[in-house]
């Protein structure tokens, strides 16, 4: 995949080619691709002159560095107790109905992935979620439907 090779090279030019550069490069791949494929990990290993196992070991440690294929928009619903108390289950149900997927799944058109995550830091305004890097708080059924519909239209 020439595009991945090019992306990894660009990221390495920006962040450097030492061990300290590894996380920023992997994060850069996530920003562009939403997940890090085996091919991408091999490219990073080659570009940084380190073993692929080392890249794999680092990437798989971090929950936001997905190595499974993900949709264009990754939805992460906060499942920590305060968001749970404020209606997290209803939020998940709403998204599952809208997108016809369960938690952990990706839509057939590869547009959305639905996941749960730990505390997002919006406990006073729960329930909360992230879509890629954008946080949304104070959700209710209407609000979350509106937000998801907006992404569907994108």
């Amino acid at each position: 995949m020439p595009e991945i090779k090019e992306l990894v090279k660009q990221l390495a030019d920006k962040h450097g080619r030492n061990r300290e550069s590894l996380l920023p490069i992997l994060q850069g791949i996530i920003t562009e691709e939403q997940s890090i494929s085996d091919v991408a990990m091999s490219e990073v290993a080659e570009e940084l002159n380190m073993s692929a196992a080392l890249v794999y070991g680092t990437a798989t440690f971090y929950s936001f560095l997905d190595t499974e294929p993900r949709g264009t928009y990754v939805i992460r619903i906060c499942k920590t107790i305060t968001c749970d108390m404020k209606g997290k289950k209803q939020m998940i149900q709403t998204i599952e109905d809208l997108l016809k997927i369960k938690v952990g799944e990706t839509t057939k058109d590869n547009k959305f992935t639905l996941l749960e995550t730990n505390c997002l830091g919006w406990c006073h305004k729960g329930p909360a979620m992230l879509i890629n890097s954008t946080p949304y708080d104070s959700l209710d059924v209407n609000k979350i439907t509106e937000i998801i519909m907006e992404y569907i239209r994108k």
Partner: peptide, 11 residues
Amino acid sequence: DEGEPGTFKDR
């Protein structure tokens, strides 16, 4: 790296 459930002051 404010990750403790229920904490959001650093944000």
